[in-house]
């Protein structure tokens, strides 16, 4: 079981887009805008994720918990994970609806329940607020889905509630372009499905023992994004290894305990962020070792690997 928290790392340039559009739209007559375009990225969202592997089904279950920070201006009403992986058996809290985007690698959870409506609610023709959105300071869990693909770092998008732009007629919108979901959301990174299991970096220097430990879904000297998700697989080729001898140092700091079993054989996953881990922006070196039996012999040997990766 993995559990970790992640704050957003960047926001879209919607403000810049809106400023640019306001310049462009200077020519037409004064528009009768009733509801202007509102920046729906005005939320501060922390995502906690738990990843477990079910050996019976062969699926990883990704469970998310969202916390809307006190800095959020809007109530959170949508949360999407960016992934190309197959996603199934999605679950959502009451009043929320899970579903994929069309032709986009996004899996979304949206607050759709509107009842009970606010006592002062008046139907203006616009989209009403949801009764189950996440208000500033609140936490809501129960978002989950399964996937056959292992964990890697993915982007997430969170959007706050705001009425959509409204005007008397179409001409009033002249010069105003409505951004799509990904351009009008708070963007962060979290853990989701999508690891490339076809990529295993095993060191390559001592073929007889390289299979004792391999890094899955990552190549040496890759540039990664935070949080860094490192998957290890012991006995890549079915070798016999002694997992009690496993050691791992990230930038010379012991991180062996950060690699947690997912339940998928001898697979372990470690998640490293700037806060609470030795990972740094720039060059990072993860050094591992594990003892095992050299195939075809009774001899014990050690497989030591060094994975270098970079953080922009």
């Amino acid at each position: 079981m993995l559990d970790f928290e992640r704050h957003a790392v960047r926001k879209p340039g919607l403000l810049a887009i809106m400023l640019a559009l306001s310049c462009v739209s200077a020519t037409p007559a004064a528009a009768e805008i009733i509801v202007p375009l509102i920046d729906r990225s005005q939320v501060d969202v922390t995502v906690s994720v738990d990843v477990q592997f079910d050996a019976l089904t062969g699926f990883y279950t990704y469970s998310y918990q969202l916390t809307s920070g006190l800095g959020s201006v809007l109530d959170v009403e949508s949360f999407a994970v960016e992934t190309n992986a197959e996603v199934l058996n999605a679950q959502a809290p009451a009043g929320w609806d899970p579903g994929p985007f069309d032709d986009q690698p996004l899996f979304d959870f949206a607050a759709v329940q509107v009842e009970p409506l606010p006592p002062d609610y008046v139907d203006t023709g616009n989209i009403p607020p949801s009764a189950v959105s996440i208000k500033p300071g609140e936490t809501l869990g129960g978002f989950s889905f399964q996937s056959p693909e292992g964990p890697t770092t993915v982007l997430f998008y969170a959007q706050g509630y705001a009425p959509v732009p409204q005007a008397d007629d179409e001409d009033d919108f002249e010069g105003i372009e409505i951004p799509i979901f990904t351009e009008n959301s708070f963007i962060g990174s979290t853990v989701g499905p999508g690891r490339d299991d076809g990529v295993v970096f095993a060191g390559g220097r001592r073929p007889s023992v390289d299979g004792f430990l391999g890094f899955v879904g990552v190549n040496d000297r890759d540039t990664l994004i935070l949080p860094v998700v490192i998957s290890l697989r012991f006995a890549v080729n079915g070798e016999t290894v002694d997992t009690s001898t496993f050691t791992a140092q990230l930038n010379r700091v012991d991180v062996a305990g950060s690699f947690q079993p997912t339940g998928n054989g001898d697979e372990r996953v470690g998640i490293f962020d700037l806060a609470g881990s030795p990972v740094v922006v720039g060059r990072n070196v993860l050094v591992t070792s594990i003892d095992g039996i050299v195939p075809g012999t009774a001899r014990t040997a050690s497989d030591g690997d060094a994975l270098t990766f970079f953080i922009d």
């Binding site: 996004l106 759709v112 989209i127 959509v164 372009e177 409505i178 799509i180």
Partner: peptide
């Protein structure tokens, strides 16, 4: 309306409301 917006968003359709 709420459901309509969700479906439209997932279809990459942007949404505005016009009154007249």
């Amino acid at each position: 309306k709420r459901e309509f917006e969700k479906i439209a968003t997932r279809l990459k359709l942007t949404l505005k409301v016009e009154n007249k």
